[in-house]
């Protein structure tokens, strides 16, 4: 165990980010627009952290992570259509559905590695996308409008934007903590070792496959949770939410923030949402600026934002 002081120093950046997000509404950032933006950033942050567990932790570059968010979104929609809006039911169902999808697709995908893995996760993600688009009772391509947010034990707490802000923040902290603890555990050690050198891990007597699969399922489950929040935040769900572009954006958040650290994904999500907001205000064709910017970030910002904030940390991770 490390001393509390050292722990505090090492995790200073994520703690500071969480503190700032907690304080933001109290410091005057409490207009509905700002709260919407921050909620979006935190929700994407949850998904990005879980993806970072896969990419940075296990070395599994998934290009279909948005699909697990999609399972969360569509769990909300399908239960809403059946008049079930209680979060105590919706959240477990969503997480279970996303985890099951990850288990089934992961069982096939993790048999492969490298570029095969990227393409297969992409293909499975598209499979989820086309399935969502063909769900005519739930709006098909046009999407589905939720009439209200989920209730929590019968109360409509989530309707209140401020409360929703703190719910998102709380879950973001939980997701980060879960992934952080996982990576630091014996389980995480095997994952990281298998990322560096699967042969040696095999030689030591560990089969990486079940470890990777469990990580994949956990990441999917957390993604499902993010999906529930996303559906509640926008009160609307469309297949576009889970298109492969969204998976690519999530991957970009992870890289932008820095693969070496989990909180990098949160920084990446915040930066991404802000960037998108700024550029979209500038021009309708903001993607023409965003695309080249993305390329430049990948080309030059190797340690990511987290690397800029903590140079020593970045050096340690290589």
């Amino acid at each position: 165990m490390t001393a509390p002081g050292a722990l505090l120093r090492r995790e200073a950046v994520p703690l500071l980010v969480f503190l700032l997000l907690a304080a933001a509404p109290l410091l005057g950032f409490s207009h509905s627009h700002e709260l919407t933006l921050m909620a979006r950033a935190m929700i994407l942050g949850i998904a990005a952290v879980s993806l970072s567990l896969l990419v940075g932790g296990a070395g599994l570059v998934s290009l279909g992570h948005a699909a697990s968010m999609g399972f969360g979104c569509y769990a909300v929609v399908i239960l809403d259509a059946a008049n079930i809006v209680e979060a105590a039911i919706v959240v477990p169902v969503a997480i279970a559905a996303a985890a099951l999808f990850s288990l089934v697709t992961g069982a096939v995908a993790i048999r492969t590695s490298g570029v095969h893995f990227i393409m297969i996760t992409l293909a499975f993600g598209q499979m989820a996308y086309f399935t969502a688009a063909s769900l005519a009772p739930y709006g098909g391509d046009d999407g589905y409008t939720l009439y209200a947010r989920n209730t929590v034990f019968g109360r409509d707490w989530l309707q209140d934007r401020m409360a929703f802000h703190y719910v998102c923040l709380g879950l973001l902290v939980l997701a980060w903590l879960l992934c952080r603890v996982l990576l630091a555990s014996r389980f995480g050690r095997v994952l990281r070792a298998a990322r560096e050198n699967p042969q040696r891990v095999l030689a030591v007597g560990f089969n990486p496959y079940p470890f990777r699969l469990v990580a994949y399922v956990i990441a999917g489950a957390v993604g499902g949770l993010a999906g529930v929040l996303l559906a509640n935040a926008t009160e609307f769900v469309a297949p576009a939410y889970i298109s492969w572009q969204r998976s690519g954006e999530l991957l970009f958040m992870v890289i932008l923030g820095g693969v070496g650290s989990l909180h990098g994904a949160i920084l990446g999500a915040l930066a991404y949402v802000l960037l998108e907001e700024q550029l979209a205000a500038l021009t309708e064709h903001w993607r023409m600026i965003f695309g080249p910017l993305l390329i430049l970030c990948v080309l030059f910002l190797r340690g990511g934002l987290a690397g800029l904030l903590a140079p020593r940390e970045a050096a340690r991770h290589g």
Binding site: V61, G248, L251, F252, I255, L294, I295, V298, L299
Partner: peptide, 28 residues
């Protein structure tokens, strides 16, 4: 050509950036 030596993850993202740009350019 700036990404041949880089890992697959960087290549995926860089070419993703090209897609975003060109899809939007075509729209424009």
């Amino acid at each position: 050509r700036h990404f041949y030596e880089r890992d697959h993850l960087s290549q995926v993202l860089a070419t993703f950036g090209v897609i975003l740009f060109l899809n939007q350019a075509v729209k424009a």
